[in-house]
Design a protein around this nucleic acid. Structure first.
Lengths: 200, 200
DNA sequence: GAAACTTATTAAACCAGTTTAATAAAATAA
DNA sequence: TTATTTTATTAAACTGGTTTAATAAGTTTC
């Protein structure tokens, strides 16, 4: 990866923050220096169960999936792709060891800031505190949408909805992870796909 | 309801805010005046579908349940009881008409602050902005726990877990709402309860 | 305290998913 | 290109819930 590409990623990160709220140029540039680039190869983990989660992350490129092992089975909670913030929020907030994996499903570039640095930026700047609040609000809205879908739709509808909303996901992520995300077995999803293809 | 009881509720609200972060006494007292008391009788709604959600609420006493009508059926997302903040966050945040009901399952007292007033308090005070961030974080953690449970446990386990975590709920709320909260029909929950009582 | 209404249980038929296992197809490595 | 591994499909038996409907138990209300 070239240095110029790296600079572009930081520009995206900067614009992302500015999309939440106004932040003074100087101040933002100062705190952006705390973000460190991490390259995560396909299949590598950023976080595994038992680890402490000390960073807040931004996906510059690629895809990280967030899952848990439950009786030996992957239960996927979320896929994080380009230009979004993520972390294992429960472990990050409570400062307890993680129960989750954060793993790259393709070669991925993330930027990471230490919790202590992030918290300091919030303490020192009302503007960044505001960014913190609004990004937390966005995280809430995202997971809320998921709860709504999980509890209100049939599996078939939820699959079709996912196809519509995040068509890229089905190209870049194996189907068994999609199945897990929808709360199904790979076999179950396969049956649903067949049912759909027949009924058209 | 007497005036002295009313004052106690405001004290609880004040302590609740202070439990998130330090706030200057004067400032907090000032903004607390924007909270207006609302008495909601059992069965009455605070919000119905189609309405705009202009307030952020605090439960002083009683229980509000948050649900949606999906093909004529109640789908309960959450129960809000004493000393917690709530609102229909998606509608509140997006400023679009609500898809949900907020209804009292018993005689309830809430305190409500207008969104514009709340936002102003955040804008004017870094401390209150911080409170806003941390309460949003708490809302996230709460819904996250729900997703975790919904996607990872059997219905029977989830019912037993609820019994353990919120034993009061099963006393104060009808069983068909609990069933809905767990994503079951009343019949389904009844079968689970029978299965449990037999196996002991 | 009887009548009306609401809530909870039970039974029986049904169904969308699971589990297990075999096979096929696709991707990766040699 | 072939061999190996990973991923997706299919089939068959099974299961935990649903739906519908009847009944029973609890609550309100008058």
């Amino acid at each position: 990866m070239t240095a110029s590409a790296s600079i572009d990623y930081l520009k995206n990160l900067k614009n992302k923050i500015l999309s939440y709220t106004e932040v003074d140029e100087e101040l933002l540039n100062h705190w952006l220096r705390y973000y460190k680039r991490i390259d995560v190869k396909k299949g590598d983990t950023l976080i595994s169960p038992g680890q402490m989660v000390e960073h807040f992350y931004y996906v510059a490129k690629g895809c990280i999936y967030y899952y848990k092992l439950e009786e030996g089975e992957q239960k996927v909670l979320e896929f994080y792709t380009e230009d979004i913030f993520f972390t294992d929020l429960p472990a990050y907030v409570k400062e307890t060891p993680s129960d989750y994996y954060l793993r790259a499903s393709e070669n991925t570039v993330v930027y990471a800031i230490l919790k202590t640095d992030g918290e300091n930026s919030f303490k020192k700047s009302h503007q960044l505190e505001r960014f913190g609040r609004l990004s937390m609000q966005e995280a809430f809205m995202k997971i809320f949408t998921r709860v709504e879908r999980l509890s209100n739709r049939t599996n078939e509808e939820r699959y079709l909805r996912l196809l519509e909303k995040r068509p890229d996901l089905l190209q870049r992520v194996p189907q068994y992870l999609i199945a897990s995300y929808l709360g199904l077995t790979p076999v179950g999803l396969s049956k649903i796909r067949k049912r759909i293809s027949i009924s058209q």
